[in-house]
Amino acid sequence: MLKCFDSTYYTGVTNDIETRLSQYQSGKFPESYTHKRRPVKLVFFCEFNDITQTILFEKQVKGWSRK
């Protein structure tokens, strides 16, 4: 989970968190949610061995309140 400069949050799935964070920080993906909200800060992450469980957890997180 990334906290964006404007205090919004972004969640996603990756198999290489360091590379993906670097890509978001550098603005590599101009179409991404985070592009205009940089810099971003990694505030939470979990590791999973099963992609299905990863996606289910991501959906759960997206339902959380900001609180």
Results as ranks from 00 to 15, higher is better:
residue 1 M to F: 11
residue 34 T to N: 00
residue 24 Y to M: 04
residue 11 T to Y: 08
residue 7 S to W: 01
residue 43 V to A: 02
residue 67 K to H: 10
residue 21 L to S: 04
residue 56 L to M: 13
residue 64 W to F: 15
residue 66 R to A: 07
residue 66 R to I: 14
residue 47 E to L: 02
residue 56 L to P: 00
residue 35 H to S: 13
residue 12 G to E: 13
residue 26 S to M: 07
residue 17 I to F: 06
residue 66 R to W: 06
residue 55 I to C: 10
residue 29 F to V: 02
residue 7 S to T: 01
residue 24 Y to A: 04
residue 54 T to D: 03
residue 23 Q to A: 04
residue 61 V to I: 15
residue 59 K to W: 11
residue 44 F to V: 02
residue 17 I to G: 06
residue 27 G to T: 04
residue 55 I to V: 12
residue 62 K to T: 08
residue 47 E to Q: 06
residue 17 I to L: 15
residue 51 I to L: 11
residue 35 H to P: 00
residue 26 S to K: 13
residue 17 I to C: 04
residue 34 T to C: 07
residue 30 P to T: 07
residue 66 R to Q: 11
residue 6 D to W: 05
residue 21 L to Y: 10
residue 39 P to F: 05
residue 61 V to R: 03
residue 56 L to Y: 14
residue 57 F to T: 10
residue 37 R to L: 04
residue 15 N to T: 10
residue 55 I to T: 05
residue 20 R to K: 13
residue 64 W to P: 01
residue 44 F to Q: 06
residue 58 E to H: 01
residue 5 F to N: 15
residue 8 T to L: 08
residue 62 K to Q: 13
residue 10 Y to M: 03
residue 10 Y to I: 06
residue 45 F to I: 02
residue 60 Q to K: 11
residue 19 T to V: 08
residue 67 K to E: 14
residue 37 R to C: 00
residue 67 K to V: 07
residue 61 V to F: 12
residue 34 T to L: 02
residue 32 S to A: 09
residue 40 V to F: 10
residue 63 G to Q: 15
residue 12 G to N: 07
residue 38 R to P: 04
residue 34 T to P: 03
residue 56 L to C: 08
residue 63 G to D: 09
residue 35 H to Y: 15
residue 39 P to M: 04
residue 50 D to K: 09
residue 8 T to I: 05
residue 13 V to A: 03
residue 3 K to S: 03
residue 53 Q to E: 15
residue 42 L to Q: 04
residue 28 K to A: 11
residue 67 K to T: 10
residue 21 L to F: 14
residue 49 N to A: 09
residue 23 Q to P: 01
residue 15 N to F: 10
residue 62 K to F: 09
residue 7 S to M: 06
residue 59 K to V: 05
residue 12 G to L: 05
residue 47 E to P: 00
residue 45 F to L: 05
residue 58 E to T: 00
residue 42 L to Y: 08
residue 11 T to L: 06
residue 10 Y to C: 00
residue 5 F to L: 05
residue 40 V to W: 10
residue 67 K to I: 12
residue 46 C to F: 13
residue 28 K to I: 04
residue 40 V to G: 01
residue 15 N to W: 15
residue 53 Q to L: 15
residue 54 T to W: 02
residue 2 L to W: 13
residue 37 R to F: 03
residue 7 S to V: 01
residue 34 T to W: 01
residue 57 F to K: 11
residue 59 K to I: 08
residue 61 V to W: 14
residue 67 K to M: 14
residue 7 S to K: 06
residue 60 Q to D: 14
